[in-house]
Write a protein that binds this DNA or RNA. Structure first.
Length: 110
DNA sequence: AGCCTGACTCGGA
DNA sequence: CTCCGAGCCAGGC
């Protein structure tokens, strides 16, 4: 069960395209785990050496979910900036511009 | 089992 | 804008 949920979560994260981001809640929905955003974060924390674009998952506020200034926060931000994802002065990503909208959510890209 | 914590989110004050 | 409170669920003690 857990492993099954994790598998679905990883499956979704793997599909996030470069230069785009998505939220924990969206990943949960796409993985058929609506309302379990928290478990997504949990699954990502247990990534191990899997090669997944985990940096493309941010919270619903468009912010990195690590303490500002922490090592992981810096790493994630750096990886995203390398993909040309922009952060405003407050460290927020404009989800209206960078959010990934897969067809399975009913929306097309812009 | 009970209790706390956490890469979350949403609605209300 | 910020601060709860509640819902969520896996893990560790």
């Amino acid at each position: 069960m857990t492993s099954e949920s994790y598998r679905k979560i990883y499956e979704v994260v793997r599909r996030i395209p470069r230069g785009r981001v998505t939220t924990y809640g969206d990943v949960a929905r796409l993985a058929g785990l609506s309302g379990q955003a928290r478990q997504v974060g949990y699954a990502l924390a247990a990534l191990g050496d899997r090669q997944l674009p985990w940096q493309r998952v941010v919270n619903a506020a468009g912010r990195i979910s690590f303490p500002a200034g922490s090592e992981l926060a810096e790493l994630q931000r750096g990886l995203l900036e390398d993909e040309l994802v922009e952060f405003d002065a407050a460290g927020r990503i404009d989800l209206a511009r960078f959010r990934w909208r897969p067809r399975t959510l009913g929306r097309s890209d812009r």
